[in-house]
Design a protein around this nucleic acid. Structure first.
Lengths: 196, 196
DNA sequence: GTCTATAATGCGATAGAC
DNA sequence: GTCTATCGCATTATAGAC
């Protein structure tokens, strides 16, 4: 979207990783451990083995760097929600989003934790209507049509609750299949509740 | 525990609030909004209408201030868990802790969010074995005896998930009774699952 | 219990060479 | 794409007066 003439937005996997990708990797690791405000550009530069000034070639400000790290996750979730919208039954929609969400979460656990629970990211998103909407649409789809406050509470509890297991050593040590199955099952239990 | 000759550790409610309590109130509000690392002593001082130096009369370092703000919550949760331990059935224990937890969470929402989701607090607790144990015991009791990784995942998802609704405007606008009932019901749904 | 003043360090950000 | 060097400012923390 901003990278000029790049063949793909995602990590090339084949060609050598771009400088930006290396910045993302270091920044994300540190953001997840120390929080965005607790991570200085110096720490990121040291982690990459370059100087602070080199970061400014890739991003004009720290805020843009943070958004650059978080945006791919939000866009991926957004695409999953859009695809789910085209399914007929609510049940199928929820299952589709749950599966997609676990995918995202499993190979981008750090971004998920940072994006959903860091206060600095929260404030940045408040100033970007488009990115904020992506999160809202996820909640709206999972909460169902004409959601009550109770539906919304269960949905938000589930989504924010994902960050706990992602940071817990015993949970991250689980076999991936078991982790996936448990999360999806828990999601069903919370989201597919018969209305009273 | 540290305050000399103070009649009570909790807020007096009758006598004028102590200086420490005023520090806690300002700090907590700002920690919840900007995160611990995103909150400077200057911001806290400005919020209280005093100078930065005045804070150092109450706490020697920022780290001690943070722990001073968080400790009352952890001790309260710890007492609830201890009381629950003396009940016979698992069902009664879980119900007791759920009720107590919602109490704590409702009148100290900000501390709960800060204590459970701020990375700076996480690192501080890592260096205080006693405080860290309080959190672990809560997880242990709710996860049940000889918990599987699945039990633990559900428990942690629930506990960390509470922070979402606490920060969501629509959820906090719910009548307290409804909020309480929904959280307790969700907790039952996640924690009292028949083993397979 | 709060103030002014200040020390020492780290921060985000910029300029210009290579 | 990365470097050195630097600017201006905010940060935690201390010393000493009131």
């Amino acid at each position: 979207m901003a990278t000029p003439a790049a063949p793909s937005q995602a990590v090339p996997a084949d060609r050598a990783v771009s400088g930006r990708d290396r910045v993302h990797a270091s920044a994300l690791r540190l953001f997840a451990e120390f929080g965005v405000s607790g991570t200085s550009l110096q720490m990121i530069a040291d982690d990459m083995g370059v100087t602070k000034a080199a970061l400014y070639y890739h991003y004009k400000t720290k805020d843009e760097l943070v958004l650059g790290v978080i945006r791919p996750l939000l866009e991926r979730v957004s695409r999953t929600v859009e695809a789910a919208r085209r399914l007929r039954s609510r049940r199928a929609q929820v299952e589709f989003v749950l599966d997609g969400l676990v995918d995202v979460v499993l190979d981008a656990r750090r971004s998920y934790v940072v994006a959903t629970s860091d206060r600095s990211v929260g404030h940045l998103l408040e100033r970007d209507a488009e990115l904020q909407q992506m999160g809202e649409r996820l909640v709206d789809l999972l909460a169902g049509p004409d959601p009550t406050a109770v539906d919304r509470l269960r949905t938000i509890l589930f989504l924010s609750g994902l960050t706990g297991p992602l940071s817990d050593p015993e949970c991250t040590a689980m076999p991936e299949d078991e982790f996936r199955a448990t999360v999806v099952d828990t999601g069903r239990r919370l989201l597919l509740v018969r209305r009273t």
